[in-house]
Every structure is written in structure tokens, then in C-alpha cells.
Design a protein around this nucleic acid. Structure first.
Lengths: 337, 337
DNA sequence: ACCTCTATGGAAACCGGTGTCAATCATTTG
DNA sequence: CAAATGATTGACACCGGTTTCCATAGAGGT
């Protein structure tokens, strides 16, 4: 005669096991001050009823929910998805869930949209992916809103509690030095977009290696793209169509490297015999294109897991690993000269 | 002097505007029976305080939350991301949010994982992406759990209220007939994985066109992949390495088409002069590889929007568009013979 | 002026959990 | 044996909204 329509509530469990709501709550929350026999009795009833606490009610009472957010505007699908899987690695069997929010970083309403999103959902914490993560004003907005966050970045943006980063500059330096060791001397750079920290870090790595080897880094040696295939192709056209000759080009991400490959091929160049190409990220496209792309593996999945852990355990956030190391991945798009 | 720490509550709004909670609630929920002057007064206070109703409290009181779920296990990152954007198109400025849940469809715990996810989060509705969407037992699980759902599919799986699909079979037939019109007679097929409805639908489309033109469809004309680049390349190797000659190959998705391209090139074939290739999906990779891939545009983003609308407005779910049409996209990977 | 009828606003219960604090009970101590 | 101690447990308020139900005020009819 009671409303036996919905799912069982904590009251049902309490009644059936002959204890109070509060005791059931203690069982759910693994309170240590609880008689073992009582715990078992209540757990038996919970199992019998297949009772699962209502997350909304818990969220209301605890004044916190169990939702992690992820804000992104990234042209690289594989990276975003790898990130999502990394977060899932972290929240695994827990009660947390992942809320995603793609945004348009060029929209004039960007901040308003994000503010509305945060205020409406009141997420437990939010992860911000590059390039949005490099926007300090955005980080300030999160602080103002009282929303815990972690930024994914490639350079020091913040303290360790709010940052997960990788050693992009050193990684690019290593990759370019690999090219130099293969005998390359004219090594072009396809930069990432202006205002991207990852772009300037990667450019700095290229400059480090080139300068250390006494090689030219003048404006004729580089061209800018914005991390998309088309702009990578255009940058490749610009470099290959100029007076400067190149035996190798480093592109700041894999997708642009694919664009350079495209440009090279349309000019009749064979890769890697006529031109060596190196990318960055090691997303699926790197192994997919022909020839397979030499690149730098960027451990995004591990970084994502770490970012989620920082949010879930804010008290240990500063201890969680913050700097992740990249790995050079030699494939077939580089040849010696 | 009250606890002015957190965000404003409905009580703050009520007090400041001199009305009761209930009246504020009426304003929030756009109740029609409300004095216009009162409404404006309350709205002014809401704006002044930047008040946003607590979603957890609302969810508890309304016995429903504002979370849409998305369950996927798809090797194709671009498609998943496009889907996410399509959902965002639908939930736009509303209070809904999107919760994602990547799963491993080969895990023995798949059903238990999904059951735990649904029971714990109590989502308002869930979208299931292929190939999981093709699992009728999974749909039954959602029904059992009382969770509203929509399946994304390529054939009739369910009634219109629970399904968003596309005309894959006809689309592939059209694409293959295009090849035939270009003079191709030996047209191979790289199938999708066994047990995928989309795979069998696309195969059926190929058979339709080939049979109608009196062309061979024997076992030597096809090879199976599982929608990944590597298996596409292997299938390409298998077809091109056999006794049967091919002037064109249709691959059941773009990634596998890229694999076939890879295989062709490693055998010294030039595309499209020596071999024409057609893919399916029109994800970013199709325009990215060289030569740009002729393919079939699969309107996943629109489909996602429709799926989300079906969940948000269950009463109108059956009216929302359920069948989406594909579009042939000619690019440079096909030549006449 | 009197009496419905309808629009509006408020008090209190409720959604399903958790926190506070006191009550209960068994055990140990003086 | 009484009192003190510590381990368990429960009563009740509360989280921040919505809903039910009722009171009241103003409009319209006679």
C-alpha cells in the first residue's frame, strides 16, 4: 500500500533491518563506529533490496556532488577522447561521473557560457584542456566562482595543485636533436597558434636545439598553423615554396605534420627521402598516415588520470604527480641525409 | 550576519523581494498564474544576487535530474566527439548536462559496469552509440532499470521513440553504384566486424549494387576488419595480395579506408590511378589523408542532437526525426577506368 | 451591500539523504 | 555495588528546492 513504485529508499532499508536511517547511513558511509553484526545485517538488506543511495539527495545533504567536469575546445579528437578515458581510469568504480562541455574558444560568449555552466551544474571540480587551460583569466573565473579546477598545460601556469603538465620544450629539443644527429641542417618549424603556451614551448624547444647546434632559426625557417590539418598544409606550402631549402620539418602537432606531408606530396616530394617530418602528440593519425609519422608521445591519458585524482582528492592534490614525461617515437617519416 | 559564505538560496531571494519561497519557485518555473509586477520584482532580485537554483535540491524535489548519459565504445574518436557536440547543440542553454561513459564492450563485466553506472547516477536518459546500441540485451537492461534511452543505429532496432538511425544500406548502394558508373567492375569490400548491425547493413548495400549490376560478390571479393586502421590495412593486404584483381575497394568506414590506402601504397599502387577507394563516415581523417577520400557523409552530429531531444522531451520522442539521410562526398580517391 | 469565484501568496510537509547531540547499553573501575 | 567509561544507536533538525492545501484579497454578479 505504500508507494512501492520507485527504487528503495534508505527508510525501506532501515525499516526492514530494524535500525534507524542514521545507522543505515553509517553503513553506507563506512563509519568505523558501528557494530559489526549490525553492519552485516544492514548490508544483507541492502543487497536484498538492491538499494543504491540517491545521488541527488546525498549531494544535497553533503553540499557536494560527485561530478567532474571537462571543458575543451580542441581540434584533436583523439586527444580529447584519450583524455576522457584517462579520467575514467581515475574515477573507475567510484561514484564520480564525468560531465563534458565542448566550447568554442572564439565565441564572444565563452566566459558567460562557462560561467553559466559552472553555476548551474555546481560541479565538484573541473579539468580544463589546452588551449583554454592557458587562459589565466579563465582560471581566475574558476577561482571567483569557487570551483576547484585543474589545468592541463605544457608550462608553469599555476601551482602543482591546479596543474598537470608535460615537458614539451625538452621533448621537442630532443626530437630536433635527433634530426640533427641524422645529418639534417635545414630544419623548419611549423608553429602552433599564437597565444598557445604549448606552441611557444615547442617553438622554444626547437630554438634550443637549433641554436645549440649553430643552425639558423630565422623567420624564413618557420611558419605558423593553428593545430589543424589545413593550416598545417598551408604552413608546409609556405615553407616548401620559399627560397629556403629544407631537409626536415618539425610540426608542433601530428595533425599539422599530416598537413605538411600533404603539402610535400603535392609538390612531388617523397617522404622521408626528400623531406623528413616529425610531429607531436602520437595520436592515432600518426600511425595511420603514410609513411607512419615519427613523433613524440604525449601521455595524455596518464595526465588525465592524474588531473582527475587531484580533483577527487584535493587534500592530496599537491602530492599527485604533476609533470609527465614525453617519449620520442621513431617511425618511418625520418631518414638520414 | 547569516552564513553568507555560499551561493544565495531561494530563501535569500524570497526575503529580499518580500515574497515567499513558493512565489520565487513560481518565478523560476515560469508558472503562468503569477502577477506580472511580482514576477518582475523577484526577477530583479534574482539578477541582483546572481541567484542560480541548486540543481541537486531541484533534482531531489522533482525526482528527476538534468543529466543525459552517453555510453560508447568506439574506435572512431572523431565520431564520438562529433556526437558529443551534437548533444551539446540540443542541450544548449538548458540546465541539462552531458555525462560520458566510455566502456569496454569486450569486458566480461560490461553489463555489471553499466548497471552500476545507471543505478548510481540515475540519469535522466542515456544515449547508446554503436556498436553497443546493437545489443538488444543491453536495451533490455535499460528497460529493466527503468532508464530512458535512445539507441543510435543503422537499422531497425526498436521503435522510433528509442531509436535514431541512418540509411546506411541505401547509402552504400549509391556509393558502389557510383563506382560502377565510373566503369569499375572488380569492386572489393572491406566489411566491418561481425555482430555489428552497421557492418551487415553496409555489406548488404554493397551486395545490392553489385548483384543489380551482375558483378561478382564471392568470398574472394571481401575481407573483414573491425573498424580500426590496422585491420583495414590487413584487409587491404589480403584483398590486394590475392589472385583476384581490384580496380576499386569500398571500406565500411573511413579509418579502414585509410588502412586500405596504406596497404595499396606499400604494394606500389597509386591511388586513384591504380585503385579507387571509398570510405564511410566522412570523419576528419577523410579530408586529411592523401589523396582526400571519397566517402559517405554520416550526419552523426544531427543524429546526436535528435537523440538528445528525444530524451529531453520524451513526450515528443516519437515525433522527433528518427531517420537521417547520408550524403555521397566525392573527393580525389576515385578515378574512372 | 452581500456573496460567490478566481487569482495570488504563504505555511508546512516532503524529496532522501547527512550532521549534531543525546540516550542507551555493556564493560571496567574504584 | 555504584559510578565512570566507551561503544553504539537513534531522534531530530537540516540541505534547498517543490508541492499540497488553505487563507486572503479583489473582481464580478445580483
Amino acid at each position: 500500500m505504500a508507494k512501492r513504485t520507485g527504487q528503495p529508499t534508505i527508510n525501506d532499508v532501515a525499516r526492514l533491518s530494524g535500525v534507524s536511517k542514521k545507522t543505515v547511513s553509517r553503513v553506507i558511509n563506512r563509519s568505523p563506529l558501528l557494530n559489526e553484526a549490525t553492519r552485516e545485517k544492514v548490508e544483507a538488506v541492502i543487497a536484498e533490496l538492491a538499494y543504491v543511495p540517491n545521488p541527488q539527495a546525498r549531494a544535497l545533504a553533503l553540499r557536494r556532488n560527485f561530478l567532474l567536469g571537462m571543458i575543451y575546445d580542441n581540434p584533436n579528437a583523439q586527444m580529447v577522447l584519450n583524455f576522457q578515458e584517462g579520467v575514467l581510469d581515475a574515477i573507475g568504480g567510484s561514484e564520480f561521473a564525468l560531465v563534458v562541455r565542448p566550447v568554442d574558444r572564439h565565441s564572444p560568449d565563452l566566459f558567460d557560457d562557462i560561467r553559466a555552466f559552472i553555476e548551474q551544474q555546481r560541479l565538484y571540480g573541473v579539468m580544463i584542456l589546452p588551449p583554454l587551460s592557458e587562459n589565466d583569466a579563465l582560471a581566475a573565473l574558476f577561482t571567483e566562482l569557487g570551483c576547484n579546477y585543474v589545468r592541463m598545460g605544457s608550462a608553469t601556469l599555476d601551482d602543482d595543485a591546479h596543474l598537470v603538465q608535460s615537458n614539451d620544450r625538452q621533448a621537442v629539443r630532443d626530437a630536433v636533436e635527433h634530426l640533427i644527429a641524422q645529418g639534417h641542417r635545414q630544419i623548419g618549424l611549423v608553429q602552433g597558434p599564437e597565444g598557445f603556451r604549448s606552441a611557444s614551448e615547442r617553438e622554444a624547444g626547437w630554438r634550443d636545439a637549433m641554436t645549440a647546434a649553430g643552425l639558423p632559426t630565422g623567420p624564413e625557417m618557420l611558419a605558423r598553423g593553428n593545430y589543424t590539418f589545413e593550416t598545417g598544409r598551408d604552413a608546409g606550402e609556405q615553407l616548401l615554396g620559399g627560397a629556403q631549402k629544407f631537409t626536415a620539418i618539425f610540426a608542433s602537432n601530428d595533425v599539422m605534420a599530416a598537413g605538411v606531408l600533404h603539402a610535400a606530396r603535392s609538390r612531388g616530394l617523397t617522404v622521408p627521402q626528400d623531406l623528413s617530418i616529425v610531429g607531436f602528440d602520437d595520436t592515432a593519425i600518426a600511425a595511420t598516415i603514410w609513411p607512419p609519422l615519427t613523433t613524440v608521445r604525449w601521455p595524455i591519458r596518464d595526465m588525465a588520470r592524474s588531473a582527475a585524482m587531484k580533483l577527487i582528492h584535493p587534500e592530496a592534490a599537491a602530492d599527485e604527480k604533476s609533470l609527465f614525461l614525453t617519449e620520442f617515437v621513431p617511425r618511418a617519416s625520418v631518414a638520414s641525409v
